[in-house]
Design a protein around this nucleic acid. Structure first.
Lengths: 200, 200
DNA sequence: CCATCCTTTCAAGAATATCTGAAAGTATCA
DNA sequence: TGATACTTTCAGATATTCTTGAAAGGATGG
């Protein structure tokens, strides 16, 4: 309810929030979005519920609390609590305190570019960096065979080449992504135009 | 085994392949790569085994057959078969026939840019397009509330804005990715340079 | 045509991941 | 401080996904 009920409730009642008397179309629309977002969860390596909670926060104009999640998504308190925490850990939603209310509320990052940046940062840390580190270790191990027979050498060199290609690729894309985040929503269309000219 | 044993086996013996007498370092190195690739599977929304099979194909200079997968990754025939097929469906590996051998062999896409292109194409089809389609449907449903009360209208407009932002973002990134694929490994460093100047 | 070799399928079992609900933990207020 | 409101934790239940192995299906060669 955020804005409402600053006029202190006489007793220990939770300030009653404006409970969606919004028009059907809007509610259904949000529900559809949430459902679809949830369906993508398996592609993103997270649980359906986590994605749904994220979507719920994303489509809500007001902060969302645990009870909202429980009610709207029909999940248990424990489940809601744990997934909300994961989302906070990912940096996709933020805790928010509301004056006059003991509950904790959550709001999603709604700026899609910030969202992008957050996800990129996390995935880089969790996926790209471990892979790059592994590539380096692999190269070291492979190098120990540099003095082997010719055939072995050829195989080692072939593998090294693939490692190099993968590393170069990941680094090039990483650089690119960093630059895109820097130019942001404004710059990207200009950049696209430039590349278009370059590439014909 | 591809090159060897063209000198027809007298009987119905499968042409014996050069079974890795490669140096330890190289084998260990490949094993490490496979293990790490498999660990990333959950982030990629695929099973560990599927990622491991892909890695095995990726690090192998020679085509890989079902028995190789069973032996090197210690999985059942059925498992190997199904995952190989999934990888073929994804376009990440290709079937390959070897003269003089009844078995089917598989080779991975080893060009990382092709790999990138293949994955991008698939994910776009499976994730981005459904989301864009959903966004459009959501917008339609939301629009039905355009004539509502002021507050409802405001909420509907807020939601529409988020949908628009998401759509614009996905389209901008999509365009960008297409261009990057067009300029390829050669062009990307030049592009990065250009953006760098633009962004300071 | 049959025999052989190889692949695919799929029901049942195993392994994982996810969810629940109640108990324990924490913070706030009077 | 104690009462209240809320959050977190976690063991057990449930659901989902993955794997196996054996049977059925296909292709190839003789």
């Amino acid at each position: 309810m955020s804005a409402k009920s600053l006029e202190s409730p006489g007793a220990a009642q939770p300030p009653s929030r404006v409970v969606s008397n919004a028009p059907r179309g809007l509610d259904e629309s949000k529900a559809l979005f949430i459902r679809r977002w949830g369906e993508m969860a398996s592609y993103w390596g997270i649980s359906r519920t986590m994605a749904e909670i994220h979507a719920l926060c994303f489509v809500s104009t007001e902060p969302v609390c645990t009870d909202d999640v429980m009610e709207k998504l029909q999940v248990s308190r424990g489940n809601a609590s744990m997934n909300l925490r994961s989302l906070v850990d990912w940096g996709l939603i933020q805790r928010e305190h509301i004056r006059g209310d003991r509950k904790e509320y959550f709001t999603a990052l709604t700026d899609v570019w910030q969202l992008f940046e957050t996800i990129v940062r996390q995935r880089r840390r969790r996926e790209v960096e471990p892979i790059l580190e592994t590539i380096n270790r692999c190269r070291d191990m492979t190098a120990r065979d540099a003095g082997g027979k010719a055939a072995q050498n050829a195989e080692a060199r072939a593998f090294s080449k693939r490692l190099d290609d993968m590393q170069n690729f990941l680094e090039a894309i990483g650089t690119m992504v960093d630059l895109l985040m820097k130019v942001g929503p404004k710059g990207i269309s200009r950049v696209s135009g430039m590349i278009m000219k370059l590439a014909g």
